[in-house]
């Protein structure tokens, strides 16, 4: 018999909430008990993702292009070794990018909510100190305290695409995308144009389209922002930009319907 039976969230707590073990969906919501320590020592001193600051200046934002290129090369090689066909390689790259996109949407939007003048601006995470006093440890590196108003959620197709074309592109590639075009033929089709894609600039064109990684990022962002869509990359060599890539975003019909209703 399975050990994890999902109990109804009963009023009788099955176990004493003496030391928090985190949320357990099989038990349901747990009460904060009167004598529970607000923050146990063990959990604060451990290195944890919660002790890191989310602020952009907490880390060096500059990454060596060579390191970036070698990492991407390894990613492609790994996908290539694990796949049997070209489309499978592209699918794997796409999937890798997708998970990145989900995270970028939240992170970059959250970061742009932080106003540059807030008091925490020049104080990136103080997590490295060994002894953290229980309650004050995390209050200081909390960015949310400095936020007066969160950035608007993007509700329209154009808004979210501009977010990708501007914020995401400059975070990933250090510059904004070259163009954002709406298709004249189809209502649900948009194109993000990059004249010299940074990730694949050292990769000679082959039958494998490595820009599918970026497609995955775009699709991850749009999907988790509830704009279900399909993104593909097409390389369109031009005279001056022989590595030009066009990312075609095709939204599902429900997105158009919703926008027509709400506008």
């Amino acid at each position: 018999m399975s050990q994890k039976i999902i109990n109804p969230s009963t009023s009788v707590a099955p176990a004493k909430h003496s030391d928090s073990t985190g949320y357990d969906y099989t038990i349901g919501p747990q009460q904060t008990l009167p004598n529970a320590p607000s923050l146990s020592k063990a959990t604060t001193s451990l290195p944890s993702v919660y002790n890191e600051s989310l602020h952009a200046s907490a880390r060096n934002p500059q990454v060596s292009l060579a390191a970036y290129a070698f990492l991407f090369q390894e990613l492609v090689t790994q996908a290539r070794n694990a796949s049997k066909s070209v489309s499978e390689i592209e699918l794997r790259l796409h999937r890798n990018g997708y998970h990145l996109g989900i995270r970028l949407l939240e992170l970059l939007n959250f970061r742009s909510s932080v106003s540059p003048g807030s008091k925490n601006f020049f104080k990136p995470g103080n997590s490295s100190q060994g002894v953290n006093v229980a309650s004050s440890a995390f209050q200081e590196d909390s960015l949310a305290q400095g936020i007066a108003n969160m950035k608007r959620r993007d509700l329209r197709m154009v808004e979210i695409l501009q977010f990708i074309h501007g914020t995401v592109w400059s975070y990933l590639f250090g510059r904004v995308g070259d163009d954002l075009v709406k298709s004249s033929e189809r209502e649900n089709e948009f194109m993000i144009i990059d004249n010299s894609p940074l990730l694949t600039r050292f990769i000679s064109s082959t039958n494998v389209q490595c820009d599918f990684f970026v497609c995955g990022i775009i699709e991850g962002i749009l999907d988790s922002a509830s704009f279900p869509c399909n993104v593909t990359a097409h390389s369109v060599p031009e005279q001056n930009f022989d590595q030009k890539v066009v990312f075609v975003v095709r939204f599902e019909p429900q997105v158009l319907e919703r926008e027509a209703l709400r506008s």
Partner: peptide
């Protein structure tokens, strides 16, 4: 589900 005790505590 977010099961981290640190998250819970915070």
């Amino acid at each position: 589900p977010i099961t981290s005790p640190v998250f819970d505590n915070r």
